[in-house]
C-alpha cells in the first residue's frame, strides 16, 4: 500500500502562487549502513520525484542518499488552469508510486 500524502489547494484564483507539498513513506536506505553480522544493507532510495500539472511536467527533484527517510518536498506553482496535479516518485529499483489531486482555478 502506498503511503503518500499530498497537499494541493482545492481552489485558487488564476495567477495565484499556490503551495504544494508532497510526502511519501520510504526507507531511503543509504547503502552505507551495516546490518546484523556486518552484512551490508543494500541501497534503496527514491532517485527522482516529478510533479505534473495538467499533464505537463512543472517540477522535478533528484534525491540522493543524504535525503532522510519519508522525504518531504514543498514548492510553489502558479495556478493557471483547472486540472490534475500529479506526483510520481521513482526509486532506484525502477518502482514508481504516484498520487494526484484536483485543483479548480477560477
Amino acid at each position: 500500500m502506498t503511503k503518500a500524502l499530498v497537499s494541493v489547494p482545492k481552489t485558487a484564483r488564476r495567477g495565484d502562487i499556490i503551495d504544494i507539498r508532497a510526502m511519501i513513506a520510504h526507507p531511503m536506505e543509504t547503502g552505507y549502513r551495516m546490518g546484523p553480522n556486518g552484512v551490508e544493507i543494500p541501497r534503496r532510495i527514491i532517485t527522482r520525484f516529478v510533479c505534473t500539472y495538467g499533464g505537463e511536467e512543472v517540477f522535478f527533484a533528484e534525491f540522493f542518499p543524504a535525503v532522510s527517510a519519508n522525504p518531504f518536498v514543498s514548492f510553489s506553482l502558479i495556478a493557471s488552469a483547472s486540472g490534475t496535479v500529479g506526483f510520481e516518485w521513482t526509486d532506484d529499483q525502477g518502482q514508481t508510486e504516484s498520487a494526484s489531486a484536483e485543483i479548480v482555478v477560477t
Partner: peptide
Amino acid sequence: DTANPGMLWVLQ
C-alpha cells in the same frame, strides 16, 4: 498535518 510524517501512518 501536511508536514507531519506521522500522518503517513494515520493514513495507513
